[in-house]
Amino acid sequence: MLNILSALIGLVTLLMMIPAVFPLLGALNWLLVPIALFGALIGMMSSRNGGRNFCLLVAAFGALRLFLGGGIL
């Protein structure tokens, strides 16, 4: 059950990251990366690791976007 919840958090976060790809909205990732990491934390409590891995992938994508945009863009 926690794996499904973790994957759901990751999916919602990924959908919210779509507008953050556009210029001047990249600062939204400062909010979304911790949400994805929270989903990974929930996924760590599960016996399966698919949801955790998905949340870590979403967090890595958001962190990469922050890195490329200099933390603001």
Rank of each mutant, 00 (worst) to 15 (best):
L66K: 00
M1Q: 13
L57Y: 04
G62E: 01
F38G: 07
F67P: 07
N29Q: 09
N29L: 07
A60F: 08
S47N: 14
A63L: 12
L56M: 07
S6D: 00
R65N: 10
V12N: 07
A59T: 05
L14R: 07
P34G: 04
M44P: 10
G69M: 04
A27Q: 12
L25K: 04
L68W: 08
A27M: 15
L2H: 10
I18A: 09
I72L: 12
I4Q: 13
V33L: 01
I72A: 11
G62T: 05
N3K: 09
L41V: 14
A36H: 03
F61R: 02
W30G: 11
F22S: 14
L2I: 10
R48P: 08
F22V: 13
F22C: 12
P19K: 05
L66V: 03
V12L: 11
F38Q: 10
F22Q: 14
G43V: 00
I72E: 13
N53L: 15
L15G: 10
L56P: 06
L31S: 14
N49V: 12
L31E: 09
G39E: 00
N3I: 09
G71D: 09
I35G: 07
L56C: 06
G50V: 15
S6R: 01
P19I: 05
L56V: 08
L68H: 07
A63M: 08
I18Y: 03
G50Q: 13
L64N: 07
G69E: 06
L56T: 02
G50F: 13
R65A: 11
A36I: 06
N29H: 09
G50D: 13
S46P: 01
A36L: 01
G10R: 01
G71F: 07
L32C: 04
L32Y: 00
I42H: 03
R52L: 14
I35F: 11
G43K: 00
N53M: 13
A40Y: 04
R48G: 15
R48M: 15
L11E: 05
P23Y: 11
L32R: 01
A59R: 00
G39P: 05
P34Q: 06
L11R: 02
M1F: 11
T13F: 04
M16T: 11
R48K: 15
M45I: 12
I72C: 11
M44G: 10
M17P: 04
A59H: 03
T13L: 02
G70R: 06
N3F: 06
L2E: 11
I18C: 10
A27S: 12
M16R: 12
L66G: 06
L68V: 09
L31K: 10
A27P: 13
V33Q: 00
A20L: 04
L66N: 02
L31F: 09
P19E: 06
L73E: 15
S46W: 08
M44N: 10
A63K: 05
V58P: 00
L11Q: 05
A27E: 13
I35A: 09
G39S: 07
L24K: 15
R52E: 06
R52K: 14
V33I: 08
M16C: 14
A60D: 06
A27C: 12
G10D: 01
V33W: 02
V12I: 13
M45H: 15
G62H: 02
L41G: 14
M44E: 12
L32I: 01
